[in-house]
Design a protein around this nucleic acid. Structure first.
Length: 593
RNA sequence: GGAGACGUAGCUCAAUUGGUCAGAGUACUGGACUGUCGAUCCAGUGGUUGCGGGUUCGAGUCCCGUCGUCUUCGCCA
């Protein structure tokens, strides 16, 4: 037997027990005739004491122990001597006096020690991921991830959902993100695509009568990465039949409440609040607004029309918008140089510039732009933004779209800099009534904002042809702390409505037939009303763990270039493999690094 | 596809304007030490400053290219 106890569980009540522990040497403190080893496993650390009383043979081995050696010890649980209790350790009241020692596996000196005080670079961590994953923080996150999926499975199981696996090898569709392709050996020249999501399969499962489906599903998208985006990610995929939006939302409300209760010990007050897309864009400039703090966008377009300052007036009278945010009581913390940096930041989001005012002690708006305004107009602008002494007002004057992007980015950046929210808290909300269509820049027509199977709001059906831009979808996004944590829709189950939507987005029946004819055919054979949602598991773990990147929530993540530093994937393959697949690459294999 | 930051010992970092600058801590090796918990003390091994060019009397430092990591815009229905 390798162990009778773990390294995390011994307490004062175990004093006197004889125990066997196995684990890694986390640290050693050698006093010559006295040797301390902190032994580590997934459950914690325990101090092991070696003295010459253990015998020369064992003591020599003990003296030679180094970091990350794997050992097994047997010994007696003793209380720490007076004044020697370590309150920083869970097992700090006790120590194990070793009477036997086995070196299970000697380690070479490791590139970095999991218990070290200096964090290695992420590059090094990813290359030696097995060392990185020995760190208690990483293990804690992986355990949290497991617990979240456990709660999900329990929750859905209890309300009659069935987890069904859908294929990884599927059909490529040019819609949406770029596909990861897998060549077929049997059908040379043909390719499978790895799923971007199980979307079509889960709809088919509803048509198949499964009624309530979920899956913890791996998905793949060959697009550029971000801190919160991996090419390979996991989503909680859900689909329900005979439901409308309220059923889906309340089901997820229940799930979120359960997750908050079981993982954070918090009661989430239900229902989770909702905001329309239009309101989110108007008040926050983003469809996944961070609602942990205020600093809302304020419109002054009507006032801008009256002024002679071209930067304000021109966009205001030509269909654009002039909007501002008020960073309260921080004007003295932003120098001219700091504001110039904010301007550069704004430009990276498409702004031509920023107009700003500092509110002076007498409540008047000051700054280089102030001279372009009548005093009375300045006063109105100040009142509109609730300006008080030492406030910093920032304005974006542009198209609606640009003012959204710029002010949303500024709002988030300022809030983070100024610590306007408690990073430990979760703010959860729904965004509903999304637009059904977005203008297609390439064709000048319309494109589906979500996907082409999304049902329009019933009340907007009459506008489908007459006022396409105003049609809203039965779509809903779950937003947590400014991240899109999930999104779903009620699907179209009516063939004629589906055809109408296809024609609106310029998708010919032939194309639709070749892309997903199987779904269209299935829809004709008794498709029940249905809808669903998908939640990003990695992001959910990130938010529940209070982390700021998704890689720390994934055991073996990819880098920004979608490579794995531990295995060196992707890599060239043998010529024979390519031959079997009838594939020739245009890249010289010797030029691949 | 674009922008920015970074790359120096196994690891984490330092090196004033280009001028004894190849350094510290840690890991590792050897030695001392019977109550430490980031143990301490002494000694030692360890470097093509990511790679390739260029400017210069002289480059870790400046310039160009390239590779890699991170962040980000575009992209991600």
């Amino acid at each position: 037997m390798f162990r009778t106890k773990t390294c995390g569980e011994l307490r004062a009540k175990n004093i006197g027990n004889e125990v066997t522990l196995s684990g890694w040497v986390d640290s050693y403190r050698n006093h010559g005739g006295f040797l301390f080893i902190d032994l580590r496993d997934r459950y914690g650390k325990t101090q092991v004491v070696f003295t010459p009383a253990i015998g020369d043979k064992y003591f020599e081995v003990a003296q030679a122990l180094r970091l990350e050696d794997v050992i097994q010890i047997t010994g007696k649980v003793n209380p720490r001597p007076d004044g020697m209790v370590n309150p920083k350790m869970g097992t700090g009241e006790i120590e194990v006096q070793a009477v036997a020692l086995t070196l299970l596996n000697k380690s070479v000196p490791v590139p970095f020690v999991p218990s070290g005080f200096d964090m290695p670079s992420e590059e090094t961590r990813l290359k030696y991921r097995y060392l990185d994953l020995r760190r208690p923080e990483m293990q804690r996150t992986l355990v949290l991830r497991h617990k979240i999926t456990k709660v999900m499975r329990d929750y859905f199981d209890e309300i009659d959902f069935v987890e069904v696996e859908t294929p990884m090898l599927g059909k490529s569709t040019p819609e949406g993100a770029r596909d990861y392709l897998v060549p077929s050996r049997v059908s040379q020249g043909c390719f499978y695509a790895l799923p971007q999501s199980p979307q079509l399969y889960k709809q088919i499962l509803m048509i198949a009568g499964m009624d309530r489906y979920f899956q913890i599903a791996r998905c793949f998208r060959d697009e550029d990465l971000r801190a919160d985006r991996q090419p390979e990610f996991t989503q909680l995929d859900v689909e329900m039949a005979f439901v409308e939006m309220e059923d889906i939302i309340s089901t997820i409300d229940g799930l979120m409440a359960r997750l908050c209760r079981e993982l954070r010990g918090e009661e989430l007050s239900l229902p989770i609040p909702r905001m329309t897309y239009d309101e989110a864009m108007e008040r926050f400039g983003h469809d996944a607004p961070d609602l942990r703090f205020g600093m809302e966008l304020v419109d002054v377009t009507d006032l801008a029309k009256e002024c002679e300052f071209r930067v304000f007036k021109e966009p205001a009278v030509s269909g654009g918008r002039v909007r501002g945010i008020n960073a309260k009581n921080v004007a003295d913390r932003y120098s001219r140089k700091a504001i110039d940096e904010l301007t550069e930041f704004a430009k990276s989001y498409g702004a031509k510039g920023l107009v700003w005012f500092k509110v002076e002690a007498d409540g008047k708006l000051g700054g280089p732009s102030a001279k372009n305004f009548d005093e009375s107009l300045l006063q109105k602008i100040g009142e509109r933004l609730d300006a008080e002494a030492n406030d910093l007002l920032l304005f974006s004057c542009d198209t609606f779209d640009v003012t959204c992007k710029v002010l949303n980015a500024l709002r988030r950046k300022l809030a983070a800099e100024l610590k306007l929210y408690d990073p430990a808290k979760l703010n959860i909300s729904w965004i509903v009534k999304f637009p059904m269509f977005a203008p297609d820049e390439e064709t000048g027509g319309w494109t589906a904002m979500h996907h082409p199977f999304t049902a329009p709001l019933v009340e907007d059906l009459p506008k489908l042809k007459t006022d396409t831009a105003a049609v809203r979808a039965q779509a809903y996004d779950l937003v947590i702390n400014g991240f899109e944590a999930g999104g779903g829709t009620i699907r179209i189950h009516d063939t004629s409505l589906q055809s109408e939507v296809f024609s609106l987005i310029g998708l010919s029946l032939e194309t639709a037939q070749s892309q997903f004819g199987f779904l269209l055919e299935a829809l004709k054979m008794g498709a029940p009303p249905h809808g669903g949602i998908a939640l990003g598991l990695d992001r959910l773990v990130m938010l529940f763990a209070g982390l700021d990147n998704i890689r720390d929530c994934i055991a073996f993540p990819k880098t920004a270039r979608a490579s794995c530093l531990m295995t060196n994937a992707p890599s060239p393959v043998a010529a024979k493999q390519l031959e079997e697949l009838a594939i020739r690459t245009t890249v010289d294999p010797d030029s691949v690094h």
